[in-house]
Design a protein around this nucleic acid. Structure first.
Length: 814
RNA sequence: GCCGUGGUGGCGGAAUGGUAGACGCGCAGGACUUAAAAUCCUGUGCCCUUUAAAGGCGUGAGGGUUCGAGUCCCUCCCUCGGCACCA
């Protein structure tokens, strides 16, 4: 760009100058086994898209950077690494469109991202850079998969994918828009493929219990627990009338068994064909056909519009021999429970809606406490109040007690038993795409599925002519015959390679371990180094990753713990998880190319410099909030930095600082330090602004005090801080100095303002010496002398006086 | 639908149950200037009032607890995020 560059308050050369100095001096290097205490600050690594760094990235990374810099100044040995989660669809699609190699595109994108990050002054330790698409990295991703397989945690099963019959390719959920193919608009159907599945459900309880050892924010814990969705209840077997067949249902409410008036099966259930009577065959098949086109979300939403179809068969309620009709309904999911439910419309809202729609009977078996419930209007679902009725074997108790009695009875009679189900499902691990880690498995007619031998890892992605998925639904790798043909690792006979690749999550599950030992070619990371650095002290990431990524990652870690790859002392990988917020475009919408509301950090950097961009991002709002970009506020921050710059150049001298300003300085040091530790960056910046205003008004700051203030600025504005530090004649680098300590004696105010309230309403304020403000009698006496207060106390009875030392006095009168 | 988040001036936001609106933006007035930009100073929740004093109202809506509620409890409304093949 030959355009003339806008003036800044500081010479432009200082940014590249300090970037180079920091690199040369390895200012941000994390040293293994250092004697100092360690801190591992992790920010989710980005997918290096072709659009370059996004302000959302800039925001999250700066948040981590401020913390990392603060911890370094606090004397910690800080690991603050960065890398690339570079496998994925966008690159693959771009490669298809441009007919270029994804490897090349990825290299370009990561180069650009890195440059942008460095320009922003982010203090990553670049010696530990990793890339999930690097064969030396994905060798270990593949190794983990083989270990999972060896422990029986990876298996093959038929699973449906989204299939576009017109393009003849599999589609990601994202590429299905309202049930139609994003590319051609054709109706998307399902196609069953043999896929690798990873048994994360084996770890369900551990993934819940392990949270106790962490310090995640509550909403993240809740997200994980809800996602796993552990529910206790019972399996109950219902015989089918006239058939030698039993249907097993799962219910959390076995106490309502007497109230079951129908049964609903998921459309995918294979036993359906056997159950459907000839007269109903057509209707049921049609219904199943329709249901398959819907997504799970569509099936479970819109409560009022539940649909179903009668199969013609009846089940027999094992508790009382009653016949109940068997329906098929798509609000029942095959992936949850047993794929079959007993319908108890009196005590379940979904069952109630279904019964209403199809005129099925409602039999109450729990009497609500007030006994005024209208069972024709809604279901009664409480379990802690109410009494069981119409339930021969367990009448007259609360539902909670009845659940226990019911399970006991069911188990005694072998018609059912206690059971737990989870919302969490096993993890579909296969993708029919090119740009992912090849799944390192080989199929032999004689020996079945065999893992590739460790010495042959990594299984590298071979060059391929076409990156398009094949018309059969297989990945493009399937078309490379001499690659797929191989030898069986077991019998050395002819065998065929797996051609599916791994999901994006595979590489990001364990990346934080690789930063600890990025170049190790003996193992994924050295035990001693892991022991030194783990756990991750703070993991900063987006809410959108609080379930999938975080859960998968914890699962893989727990698995690695089981097989002894990670230290026994650390059963959980992340000590603390913090969510960062989202920055919306000027229109209040999420930034996206198509909306045209994307703010490009490069332009901001160009116009205002790295420090202004950083400080603005930290000032815009609370770190975990949703915020709207504002150019005007950015300019305000730029003015603040300019003001600070000029104050340092013009208002620093050897003269001692005025007492009042000195007090403000120490208050600011205290507040900024506390706020950084609590991720309250916005108020930390506000405090520094307040100090700059006071400094400006007061005139002079002593040289030594100015250095203290500069240190508080350093984590936020590293360039400005380093440059002024050097201009004040201090030795390189401010970022290697220690955080200033505030003097507690200096921060106390001499005079304070006491609020005087009458019946809780503010009526007067008193300015009073700090030493007297804690004395109740003194304050009360002075308050009563005030005319304003007197007015309110006159002719009233003083009932009570509430005194908060140093803050407030409240007279309660009547 | 389920789960989660949030709702405070013209705007972004601040406030251990204790003076609501810090800080920033914007706006208004002033200083400097031939003028502008930049910078500095002053003011700025709303209503009544010429102004001021004094007062009243005010944190999505409605109730409650409390000497005192933006903050705690209950009911409701709305916003935003996630929902398993986007990462």
């Amino acid at each position: 760009m030959a355009e003339e560059k806008k003036e800044r308050y500081y010479p432009r050369e200082i940014e590249p100058k300090w970037i180079e100095k920091w690199r040369e001096a390895s200012t941000y290097k994390a040293s293994d086994f250092d004697k100092r205490q360690k801190k591992y600050v992790l920010v989710e690594f980005p997918y290096p898209s072709g659009f370059g760094l996004h302000v959302g990235h800039a925001f999250a990374f700066t948040g981590g950077d401020v913390l990392a810099r603060f911890f370094r100044m606090k004397g910690y040995n800080v690991l603050f690494p960065m890398g690339w989660d570079a496998f994925g669809l966008p690159t693959e699609n771009y490669a298809i469109k441009e007919k270029r190699r994804p490897q090349e595109i990825t290299r370009e994108n990561t180069t650009r991202f890195k440059e942008q990050m460095q320009r922003m002054g982010l203090s990553f330790d670049w010696e530990r850079e990793i890339n999930t698409t690097d064969p030396d990295y994905y060798k270990w991703t593949q190794w983990i998969f083989i270990e999972l397989f060896k422990k029986g945690l990876a298996y093959k099963a038929q699973m449906p994918i989204n299939w576009c019959p017109s393009c003849k390719i599999g589609l990601a959920n994202e590429e299905v828009i309202n049930g139609k193919c994003e590319r051609c608009g054709a109706e998307v159907t399902k196609k069953n493929l043999e896929q690798w599945i990873v048994k994360i459900t084996d770890y369900a309880d551990r993934l819940i219990n392990g949270l106790e050892k962490t310090n995640f924010v509550e909403k993240v814990k809740a997200a994980q627990i809800n996602w796993i969705g552990k529910k206790e209840g019972a399996h109950i077997n219902f015989p089918v009338k006239g058939k030698d067949l039993k249907i097993r249902v799962f219910t959390t409410r076995p106490d309502t068994l007497y109230g079951a008036t129908f049964m609903v099966l998921a459309p995918e259930l294979s036993s359906l064909s056997e159950l459907t009577l000839p007269g109903q065959k057509r209707a049921v098949e049609e219904y199943i056909d329709q249901a398959q086109k819907k997504t799970e979300l569509e099936r479970t939403e819109l409560t009022k519009k539940k649909t179903g179809c009668f199969t013609g068969s009846f089940a027999i309620n094992p508790i009382n021999g009653k016949e109940i009709p068997i329906w098929v309904g798509d609000f029942v999911l095959s992936s949850y429970g047993t794929g079959a439910i007993m319908g108890v419309p009196a005590h379940d809202e979904r069952d109630f809606d279904f019964a209403q729609k199809y005129g099925l009977p409602v039999i109450p078996v729990i009497e609500p406490p007030e006994n005024d419930w209208d069972f024709s209007k809604s279901a009664y679902t409480e379990t802690d109040r109410g009494t069981t009725v119409n339930s021969e074997l367990w009448n007259g108790v609360t539902p909670t007690e009845a659940i226990k009695l019911a399970i006991k009875y069911l188990e005694e009679k072998s018609i059912g038993k206690k059971a737990t189900t989870y919302h969490l499902r096993d993890w579909i691990f296969s993708r029919q795409h090119y740009w992912g880690e090849p799944i390192p498995m080989v199929f032999c007619e004689k020996c079945g599925w065999q893992p590739v031998e460790e010495k042959d890892l990594p299984v590298r992605l071979p060059p391929v002519e076409e990156y398009e998925p094949t018309k059969t639904g297989e990945s493009p790798l399937a078309s490379i015959k001499d690659w797929t043909m191989t030898k069986c690792p077991s019998c050395r006979g002819k065998a065929r390679r797996e051609t599916d690749t791994m999901p994006n999550w595979a590489g990001s599950d364990w990346y934080f371990l690789r930063y600890i030992d990025p170049k190790n070619n003996q193992s994924l990371a050295d035990q001693k180094k892991l022991k030194y650095w783990l756990p991750v002290d703070i993991y900063i990431g987006g809410d959108e990753h609080n379930t999938l990524h975080l859960l998968y990652s914890r699962f893989i870690y727990q698995f690695l713990w089981d097989i002894g790859v990670v230290p026994k002392e650390e059963p959980e990988p992340y000590y603390k998880r913090v969510s960062h917020g989202v920055i919306l475009g000027l229109d209040g919408q999420r930034m996206s190319k198509s909306r045209g509301n994307v703010v490009n950090p490069d332009e901001i950097w160009e116009a205002f410099g790295a420090d202004a961009l950083r400080v603005y991002l930290m000032f815009i709002g609370p770190f975990d909030a949703t915020m709207v970009w504002s150019q005007e506020s950015l300019e305000g921050v730029y003015r603040f930095l300019k003001k600070v710059w000029n104050l340092f150049l013009n208002q620093v001298s050897e003269k001692e600082t005025e007492a009042k300003l000195k007090r403000k300085l120490h208050q600011t040091i205290k507040k900024v330090g506390e706020d950084i530790g609590n991720f309250k960056y916005n108020t930390a910046v506000a405090a520094m602004m307040e100090f700059a205003n006071s400094w400006q008004a007061s005139g002079n700051l002593s040289r030594s005090d100015s250095l203290l203030f500069l240190k508080t600025m350093a984590p936020f504005a590293p360039f400005l801080a380093e440059e002024l530090w050097s201009r004040l004649g201090e030795a390189f680098s401010i970022h290697a100095t220690s955080w200033p300590e505030h003097d507690p004696k200096l921060i106390e105010e001499e005079r304070v303002v006491i609020a005087v309230q009458i019946n809780g309403k503010l009526r007067e304020t008193l300015e009073i010496d700090f030493s007297l403000a804690k004395n109740k009698n003194e304050v009360e006496e002075r308050a009563k002398k005030s005319e304003k207060v007197e007015k309110y106390l006159k002719d009233k009875e003083l009932k009570k006086t509430i005194f908060v030392p140093g803050k407030l006095i409240n007279f309660v009168v009547s």
